[in-house]
Design a protein around this nucleic acid. Structure first.
Length: 419
DNA sequence: TCTGGGGTCCTAGGACCC
DNA sequence: TCTGGGGTCCTAGGACCC
């Protein structure tokens, strides 16, 4: 029996979420901006038609946007995360084996589940649309890479009506299809590898599929060789239906305004370490090392400075207070006066599970009562209701979000009113 | 003026060991 | 003055993903 891996993916996810709650956006060019309203990170179909690229800085787009009536909104992650959970729950009803791959994508193992996978996919699309208002496309193939490719076909070619199952194609038809797709569309082939492949005369998906694996191994590395196998229907990447714990946890932000003083940096780093530590505790882990970095803007001709430092802790911990103490100590060491800082961040590394932790005579591995209470209160009353004092209160440096939609699904005050 | 944030995996090269 | 061979572990950096 052929493996049948499906990839379900929401079309223009962030833009589609905004449209669900504001139907006047329907059919209009819409872009969703990154934090600080920096770049376009999602575009509606109409915005794509105007040639707006993923990741393009907003200040460069403003003129075109004005001419064509493009609507720009700040990103609203609380809304997207909640909508994502709803979609993933629905998808999970169709198979016991699901991997939530990103906020808007999920792999699903359909092997051995009722033979007509296209029928299942169509039903899934219809249900997600009806229950959440979001449009999805489904691609099916023998490996994750093929499922991704099928999803691409489902999206780009209207004759597939949003569902493409490569498993039902005859081998020669599959080859014909692959000859018409640029190798750059393959999952795992990025800019650099694409350039090199093209130089070697490998232009289409078909070319890559039929290339010699030894040659690929010699020219590239095992990653490309795996991709080659996956294109040939040999699954090398298993479905990860149990989410593995993160090996590193990062929290960082660009500032809304340039920051010069140590105090503001201390507040920012305190906030970031609190966020990271909360994530750490949520996955029942402790961190053995803390890294802090600060940097000036890489753009423009301002004086440049960037530095970071990692400190290993005497014993791994998940305690915000201990982590913050270390982070602030590092910050004082790497801070230099006289620069305009643009970004700061913290990273927790050397992460391991609480239960496997080696303790010494003076520490225990039961979670601190203070942290347990803090997490519980913040979960109920809102983020940062209980915080460490070094976080401060005004946060004048915090990011700009000029045009954020309400938290329609996660805040009672923002519930849509029916008039 | 204004350019996101958060991850993973792989490899090369240095440190260190016997 | 001559100066082996083989291994492991760690880190930094590159490439990729969404």
């Amino acid at each position: 029996m052929k493996r049948a891996i499906a990839l379900i993916d929401v079309n223009n996810f962030y833009a589609s979420c905004e449209r669900v709650f504001n139907p006047t956006l329907e059919g209009k060019p819409l872009v969703v901006l990154s934090n600080n309203d920096g770049c376009a990170i999602a575009r509606s179909a109409k915005a794509k038609e105007l040639g707006i690229k993923m990741g393009e800085p907003w200040f460069k787009l403003k003129e075109t946007a004005k001419q064509h009536g493009v609507i720009a909104v700040s990103s609203n992650y609380a809304l997207y995360a909640d909508m994502s959970n709803r979609v993933m729950d629905i998808i999970g009803q169709y198979s016991p084996s699901q991997e939530v791959y990103s906020i808007d994508e999920s792999f699903l193992d359909l092997t051995g589940i009722q033979p007509d996978h296209v029928k299942i996919a169509r039903e899934m699309r219809q249900r997600i649309k009806q229950w959440t208002g979001l449009p999805v496309c489904v691609g099916i193939g023998e490996s994750k890479t093929l499922a991704k490719l099928a999803n691409h076909v489902a999206k780009k070619r209207s004759e597939y009506a949003g569902v493409c199952n490569l498993n039902t194609l005859r081998p020669d038809a599959l080859d014909e299809l692959m000859k018409r797709i640029d190798v750059a569309e393959v999952w795992g082939i990025g800019r650099q590898i694409n350039t090199k492949l093209k130089a070697l005369g490998i232009n289409t998906v078909y070319d890559l599929k039929t290339a010699s694996p030894e040659y690929l191994r010699q020219q590239f590395n095992v990653v490309v060789e795996k991709t080659h196998r996956e294109l040939n229907g040999i699954a090398c990447m298993e479905l990860e239906d149990i989410t593995p714990a993160k090996q590193e946890i990062m929290s960082s932000r660009s500032f809304g305004y340039k920051v010069r003083d140590l105090k503001s940096l201390q507040e920012a780093v305190s906030l970031y370490i609190s966020t990271a530590a909360e994530k750490l505790r949520r996955q029942d882990s402790v961190a053995g090392a803390v890294r802090v970095f600060i940097r000036t803007s890489p753009h423009g001709d301002c004086p440049k400075y960037a530095n970071s430092m990692t400190i290993a802790l005497p014993t791994p911990t998940d305690d915000t207070l201990r982590l913050a103490k270390t982070a602030l100590w590092i910050l004082r060491r790497i801070y230099r006066r006289g620069y305009e800082y643009h970004k700061a961040g913290v990273m927790l590394t050397d992460i391991r599970s609480v239960s496997s932790q080696q303790t010494d005579l003076f520490t225990s591995n039961s979670p601190s009562k203070l942290m347990t209470v803090m997490d519980a209160v913040n979960a109920k009353m809102g983020k940062s209701m209980l915080r460490i004092a070094s976080q401060g209160f005004d946060a004048p440096w915090k990011m700009k979000q000029g045009n954020k939609s309400p938290n329609y699904t996660t805040n009672w005050k923002d519930l849509v009113q029916v008039k």
